[in-house]
Simulated scan of single mutants.
Amino acid sequence: MTAEVRVPEPGLRERKKAATRQALHDAAVRLAIEHGADRLTVEAVADEAGVSRRTFSNYFANKEEALLHGDRQRMVLLIDAVRARPAAEGPWTALSRAAQEAYQQIGELDPHWVAQTRLLRSEPALLAQQVSTFAALERELAAAVADRLPEAQRSGIRGRLMAATFMTATRVSLHVWLEDPAETPLAELVQRSLAEVGRGFVE
């Protein structure tokens, strides 16, 4: 019998750092929605969060990174969910079920996140930062997918194609949903998209 692996709870210092990072992200989103991302400054975000400019720099390289922190968090949680799926599941099944669980847990979407995502679509600088952020996360996801492939396929293109296809499907689903949120729940739209594009990956 395999022993259960317990992930240690974060210590007080880690929790405080996470809280500060979240406060900076929340402040950045709040100010961007109110004044526009193009008028947002690092100094304003730091002031809004009640910290120094130096403290901001300890957590984020720029205002774009602070704005996109929520998206990065969600993707990291999704990658962790893929890794936590039963080992017997094939890679595309693990991706689809992890996405289903993630969007069910999200439930009612935070209005700030919805507003931020709409803002992102109209800001070239944010889009460029998102591409860079998601490229790194896609590599992590591809590694998690590759672990589920037969050993002979792990260094090939299949895992990378799966990860790229998965992220594209979820991104397109989000953009379609934002155009008419009342039409179809986001979780259902994501599952439809994954079922459509995943036919060539079904184990």
Rank of each mutant, 00 (worst) to 15 (best):
M1T: 15
T2Q: 13
A3T: 12
A3P: 09
V5Q: 13
R6Y: 05
P8V: 07
P10D: 02
R13F: 10
R13Y: 10
R15S: 09
K17N: 15
K17T: 09
A18D: 10
A19R: 11
H25W: 08
A27N: 14
A27R: 11
A28N: 07
R30L: 14
R30Y: 11
H35F: 09
R39L: 12
V42R: 15
E48F: 00
V51L: 04
R54C: 07
T55K: 02
Y59R: 03
F60A: 03
N62A: 03
K63N: 02
E64R: 01
E64H: 06
E65K: 01
E65D: 05
A66I: 01
A66W: 03
H69Q: 08
R72S: 04
R72T: 04
M75N: 10
L77D: 10
L77S: 10
L78D: 02
A81L: 12
V82S: 00
V82M: 04
V82D: 02
R83Q: 14
R83S: 12
R85P: 01
R85W: 03
A87P: 02
A88Y: 09
A88D: 13
E89H: 10
E89T: 04
E89A: 05
W92V: 02
W92G: 06
W92K: 04
T93V: 02
T93K: 03
S96E: 12
A98I: 12
Q100T: 15
E101I: 07
Y103P: 08
Y103G: 06
Y103N: 12
Q104A: 15
Q105H: 10
I106D: 04
I106P: 03
E108A: 12
L109T: 11
D110Y: 05
P111C: 08
H112P: 07
V114Y: 01
V114M: 03
A115T: 08
Q116I: 05
T117M: 15
R118V: 06
R121D: 14
S122D: 05
P124R: 03
A125F: 09
A125W: 02
A128E: 15
Q129M: 09
V131C: 09
F134I: 06
A135T: 10
A136N: 09
L137G: 00
E138F: 00
E138S: 09
R139K: 12
L141E: 00
A144T: 01
A146S: 09
D147Q: 06
L149H: 05
P150D: 10
E151W: 11
Q153M: 14
Q153D: 15
Q153V: 08
I157Q: 11
R158G: 08
G159D: 01
M162S: 00
T165Q: 06
F166H: 15
A169T: 09
R171G: 13
V176Q: 14
D180N: 14
A187N: 07
A187P: 02
E188A: 15
Q191P: 07
L194P: 11
A195N: 13
V197I: 04
R199A: 10
V202W: 07
V202M: 07
V202I: 12
